[in-house]
């Protein structure tokens, strides 16, 4: 018995080592950014900098927070990201349900078109899109930008949600129908609860896409008070890539926090196994 347990532990060691290596690989840039953000200028310019700073300062964070509109830009990014995420999920759920549950002739064409739309490079549609938004009075508005993000992430969100919906057994809905539930009741009481992990994953994708997006935000938002975080961060870099490294690292580190918090919040919904045992 003991031997079996020992063997099991020995077998698990390489797996844990591999996971630990992977985690270090993923976390290292974040830790390096943190390390850079608390170093004095003199340490930042060393030819061979050490990983752990000799002196820890918070001056760069003070610069970021005292700087013009940095906090405002973080709030703007949260606002636009939240609007885009809620909007795209609200649009995608019924569309994904229809595509996942009803097999009609046009389904494959719709999916095909959704995939093709992903092939257009941003710059190709930018001018046309900007002209439309100007005519609609939607430039210089967070709603306009959120609308663009909704449209931009919709195809991928739709495909993701569709696959989650397909994974929910049809038998569950049939059983609900036999019990007298209407289609709406079935969706609200059966499908949506089982779809929560999918909604959490796609919401995370939509939010992070909006959170990181630069070019649409740059072109659509002209008023200084509307600017989002990625655009604000770019302003810490000068000509030929010369950067204000300390404040840039501090601001970038702050920028990762909301996405991490959101991930932590949604993680509990990212659990699998909701469907286990639902059908024989």
């Amino acid at each position: 018995m003991k031997k079996t347990k020992f063997n099991k532990i020995v077998t698990l060691i390489p797996s844990y080592l591999a996971i630990a290596t992977y985690i270090i690989f993923l976390v290292f840039p974040l830790l390096w950014m943190l390390s850079v953000s608390v170093r004095p200028e003199a340490e930042l310019t060393r030819l061979e900098p050490s990983f752990i700073p000799e002196t820890v300062i918070l001056e760069h964070y003070a610069t970021v927070f005292s700087g013009p509109k940095m906090i405002q830009s973080i709030l703007n990014s949260i606002k636009v990201g939240a609007m885009a995420t809620v909007g795209v999920i609200a649009l995608a759920i019924p569309a994904a349900y229809a595509l996942g549950r009803y097999s009609t002739r046009i389904n494959k064409y719709v999916i095909g078109w959704v995939l093709v739309s992903q092939l257009f490079p941003t710059i190709l549609i930018m001018i046309a899109l900007l002209m439309i938004l100007i005519r609609l009075g939607l430039t210089n508005s967070h709603f306009g930008l959120a609308l663009v993000y909704m449209v931009w992430t919709l195809p991928f969100v739709l495909l993701m949600l569709q696959s989650y919906i397909k994974a929910i057994p049809q038998e569950l809905e049939d059983a609900a129908a036999i019990d007298g539930a209407t289609r709406t009741q079935t969706i609200m009481a059966i499908v949506l609860p089982l779809l929560l992990p999918g909604i959490a994953a796609t919401a995370l994708f939509a939010f992070v896409s909006a959170w990181n997006e630069f070019f649409f935000a740059l072109v659509l938002l002209r008023e200084p008070e509307l600017v989002t975080l990625p655009v604000m961060l770019a302003r810490l870099v000068g000509r030929e890539g010369v950067a204000r490294l300390g404040p840039l690292a501090a601001a970038s580190f702050i920028a990762t926090i909301p996405a991490l918090v959101l991930f932590g919040f949604l993680q509990k919904w990212l659990t699998s196994g909701l469907l286990s045992g639902s059908v024989k």
Binding site: I123, M126, I127, L130, F215, V219, R222, P224, V227, V237
Partner: peptide, 21 residues
């Protein structure tokens, strides 16, 4: 005063010229 940045000014201006904004 409107702040721009060196990294994206070219694309920004090209887009702006194209739409007249």
């Amino acid at each position: 005063y409107v702040q721009g940045d060196w990294g994206s000014i070219h694309d920004f201006m090209i887009t702006s010229f194209a739409v007249g904004n």
